[in-house]
Computed example of a mutant assay.
Amino acid sequence: MSSQDFADRLRARRPAVGYWVILDAPAATERIAGVGYDYVVLDAQHGLLSTRGILDGLIAIDAADGATVGMVRVEANNATPIGRALDAGAAGVIVPLIDTAEDAAQAVRAARYPPSGIRSYGPTRSGLRIGPTPAEANAATVVLAMIETRAGLDNVAEICATPGLDGIYVGPSDLCLAVGGKFPGDPDVAERFDEAIALIARVAADAGVAAGIHTQSGEMARQRLAEGYTYATVSSDLDHLRGVAAAHLATVRE
């Protein structure tokens, strides 16, 4: 799938399923990208990835089979990490901690070349897949804003209405804390959390933008898609590595 095809898919709100990568292990990332996910996200905020790790991870995704695109969850809503991820070849960025429509507009500007934005022209590796003109690059680049704070939830309608924003992405761990949870997954706020999840999906649909969410399993990803989310990401390499290793150990010890 080309970057433009992926952008068109999200903008048309056609379902997509992705995977989350935390580890700086290009060979493993390449293997995961070959499974058949629509996109693989490299986590530059909480993941164990340096700038070189992001580059190597994107190369690994491209090397897999060409059907999966690489995305980057950048470390902050700032033009430098956003531009660096896109220059390295990301099909788009997921920008954390978006509280307001102005925050979302700032992220959009950082990811777009003039006159639509402020991105400096230096495509380096991204020029292999996106462009070559700035207008073509803008059209093929996806910008997603994370909804994960109390302010972001309160302002989700205004955020979704931001010109140039392709969609939103729910960070469920932080969102659970934002609605009063003592820890991610706190059962005491399950009802409030579920209401927030449903609200975000409705607001995004009304605005005509894609709503995405991180999930812990294929079952939960399927549920969220059925509930109206456009795209869902499944767990992460580190969680699956530990889970499978623990399951095998338990089997042996039984």
Rank of each mutant, 00 (worst) to 15 (best):
I200N: 06
A207W: 03
I118H: 13
N138E: 12
A196C: 06
A211E: 02
A201Q: 01
P115D: 12
V143I: 07
G164W: 07
N155H: 13
A140F: 07
V203Q: 05
L165R: 10
G181D: 01
P184V: 01
P187V: 03
A205P: 00
P187Y: 01
A111S: 14
R150Y: 04
F193K: 00
G167P: 05
G171M: 05
R192L: 11
T133W: 10
T124E: 14
T162I: 08
V170R: 02
I159C: 12
A111N: 11
D206A: 10
T162Q: 12
L128M: 15
A207H: 06
T149Y: 09
V143K: 08
P163A: 13
D206G: 10
P123I: 13
P134C: 14
E191Y: 06
R109Q: 14
G185N: 02
T124A: 13
G185Q: 02
I200W: 04
P134L: 14
D154R: 14
A201P: 01
A161S: 12
I168A: 09
S126R: 14
D206C: 03
A178W: 02
A198V: 07
R109Y: 09
P187E: 01
G185W: 07
G180L: 10
F183I: 01
Y121S: 15
G167T: 02
G208H: 05
V203P: 00
S116T: 12
Y113S: 12
S116A: 15
V179S: 01
T162N: 10
S116R: 15
A198M: 06
L153I: 05
T141N: 08
I130C: 07
V203F: 05
K182G: 10
G180A: 11
N155S: 09
I118Q: 12
R202L: 00
G181F: 04
A198W: 05
R129I: 12
P114Y: 15
A151C: 12
S173R: 05
G167A: 08
A157G: 11
S126F: 13
A161T: 09
I197A: 02
T124P: 04
G152Y: 07
A205Q: 02
E136L: 08
D166P: 03
G212F: 01
I147D: 11
L128I: 13
A145E: 11
E148Y: 07
A135V: 13
D186I: 01
G152P: 03
A137K: 09
G127R: 14
S116H: 15
V142K: 06
G164C: 07
V179P: 03
G185S: 04
N155L: 07
P114I: 13
G171Q: 02
G131T: 05
V170Q: 03
G127A: 15
T141I: 06
A111K: 04
F193V: 00
A211N: 02
F193I: 00
E158G: 09
E191R: 05
A110L: 11
A151M: 12
G131Q: 09
K182M: 07
P163Y: 09
A140E: 06
D194M: 03
T141G: 08
S126M: 14
A204R: 03
A137E: 07
A211T: 00
V142R: 10
D166E: 09
S120M: 15
E148I: 04
S120H: 14
